[in-house]
């Protein structure tokens, strides 16, 4: 029987491998940074004049549009990372290397959970680098916010990674993945509070507002947003936790079947 030490060794091995892969795939590394930075410095700059954001929780004063979308972009980094991890699982399965993972003498749920947490660690590297660049450009947060944000980052990364894992278990070929990315990533991102407050979307379309409220990504964004400003959003954290458990359970079941 494998003891706790065995589980720790395996978990550490998976995390080290995912980090090495991320650091050595320079294209992925830069893409992970360039994408949110483009949104922050190009998209947000253009929208700053057109879009005013009134004082809403957790903010206590008027904020710039860049400050508003920062948590949404952090969540976007995690969303892309979660989908990228699942993409790598589809590739691993197509190339056959997934079988080596499957013949490891460890429960499969733990293997998948280790992969998820490893993905979370990789996304933390990306998020903190992104926040550091934003800080250099004067988009600063409360100092403790950089630390307090950690649980929300880990949990939302697990939720989004589980969703990606669930999708990857249903995808048989790599070609199908691009379509699913378009049907999952973009709707999730745009139909959320990442770019605009939900009340503002509601002014434009009550239907879109309802879709945003039903979107788990919205709660990941809000969980991160509140944490950054040292506040706790019970609803957002509860939804993220609930969705993480549900997505992961279904993903493990689907994975075993596939």
């Amino acid at each position: 029987m494998i003891g706790w030490a065995g589980y720790w060794i395996l978990f550490r091995g998976v995390v080290v491998r995912e980090c090495l892969r991320f650091l050595q795939q320079r294209g992925r590394f830069f893409a992970a940074l360039v994408r949110p930075l483009m949104w922050l410095f190009v998209f947000a700059a253009g929208f700053r004049a057109a879009l005013g954001v009134s004082i809403i929780e957790p903010y206590e004063t008027y904020i710039t549009y860049e400050t508003y979308i920062l948590p949404g972009l952090v969540a976007m980094v995690q969303l892309f990372n979660g989908m990228q991890s699942s993409l790598s699982m589809v590739v691993d399965r197509e190339l056959g290397s997934m079988r080596v993972l499957m013949v490891s003498p460890v429960p499969r749920w733990f293997l998948l959970f280790s992969k998820l947490l490893a993905g979370a660690v990789v996304s933390l590297l990306q998020v903190y680098l992104f926040l550091a660049i934003a800080w250099l450009f004067d988009i600063a947060l409360p100092a403790w916010g950089y630390l307090i944000i950690l649980p929300s980052l880990i949990l939302s990364s697990i939720m989004l990674g589980s969703l990606g894992m669930l999708l990857s278990s249903a995808i048989k070929q790599l070609e199908n993945f691009a379509g699913i990315m378009n049907f999952v990533i973009f709707p999730m991102f745009f139909l959320s509070s990442a770019l605009y407050p939900i009340w503002k979307i509601g002014e434009a379309s009550p239907l879109l507002e309802k879709l945003c409220i039903l979107n788990p990504f919205t709660y990941a964004v809000e969980f991160i947003r509140f944490s950054l400003y040292l506040k706790f959003d019970l609803t957002a954290s509860g939804v993220v936790l609930f969705c993480s458990v549900i997505f992961f359970t279904i993903a493990v079941y689907a994975f075993k079947r596939s």
């Binding site: 395996l10 550490r12 091995g13 998976v14 080290v16 892969r21 050595q24 993972l101």
Partner: peptide
């Protein structure tokens, strides 16, 4: 092959040892 092409031989073996 189940090896990770972007990692070194040693890094691959360390990963499989951990598995």
């Amino acid at each position: 092959s189940a090896l990770d092409l972007d990692l070194t031989v040693e890094q691959n073996l360390n990963y499989f040892a951990a598995l």
